[in-house]
């Protein structure tokens, strides 16, 4: 495992910590898209079906358990916690799940490595992760006052994807015969989705302004 992969995973973990901090400590999920969080829970549930059958390392297994556990915890908080759920911007978070789930599943049936249930679901999770941030980005654009934790959460998620790209470049040059086109192309698409957000995040940060996205 190279440094970019480790930093990418840690950034991903930190994004979850930031989000849980906001939800658990401040008891607010304002500006957070439940649609995106539900899509992430679905991503992890379909990708980590191999958790007990396919052992890579203790590190991988522990991280899988953490991402599964936290993603469902976040969804639970936003849907059921009596204080947190009242801070959810339901009227603004209008993106429809099926508009992302159905095309991703169709694509996974068409383009996959092996035609087995586990492989198709794994591929589906890769495609879905690439676009799962979409409802969150739409919600951010509609939010007038984006708080620091929400801005930082999305920034960390984007940074995690960027670091994974660097990890793949390192692996390509250091591991003989290493290639994974499905993951690479999805990862590039996923990182590109953050480009616009990054531009405004850095611009506002440099001008010492509060984060706001043009609508």
């Amino acid at each position: 495992m190279n440094i970019f992969r480790l930093c990418g995973d840690m950034t991903h973990l930190l994004s979850v910590v930031v989000l849980l901090l906001k939800i658990h400590t401040i008891k607010s999920c304002a500006g957070i898209s439940l649609k995106t969080q539900e899509l992430y829970a679905l991503v992890f549930a379909t990708r980590y079906l191999d958790i007990f059958t396919h052992h890579v390392s203790l590190y991988n297994t522990v991280m899988k358990i953490i991402f599964l556990g936290t993603s469902f915890t976040i969804v639970w908080y936003m849907r059921h916690h009596k204080v947190v759920r009242q801070t959810y911007d339901k009227e603004q978070d209008t993106f429809k799940h099926y508009m992302l789930i159905i095309p991703c599943f169709a694509l996974a049936l068409l383009i996959k490595t092996k035609f087995t249930p586990l492989e198709v679901l794994w591929t589906f999770s890769i495609y879905l992760e690439a676009v799962a941030i979409f409802p969150q980005l739409v919600l951010l654009q509609r939010t007038k006052n984006i708080d620091n934790l929400t801005g930082n959460y999305v920034f960390l998620l984007g940074a995690y994807r960027g670091l994974y790209l660097l990890n793949w470049i390192v692996r390509y040059f250091t591991e003989k015969g290493y290639r994974q086109w499905i993951t690479w192309i999805s990862g590039i698409v996923q990182t590109a989705l953050y480009a616009d957000f990054f531009y405004y995040y850095i611009k506002c940060w440099r001008n010492n302004e509060k984060l706001h996205l043009p609508s």
């Binding site: 995973d9 191999d50 991988n60 991280m63 991402f67 015969g177 290639r179 994974q180």
Partner: peptide, 10 residues
């Protein structure tokens, strides 16, 4: 081209 690695990333 076929992907060559087992799924070893998160």
């Amino acid at each position: 081209t076929e992907d060559t690695k087992e799924h070893d990333e998160l």
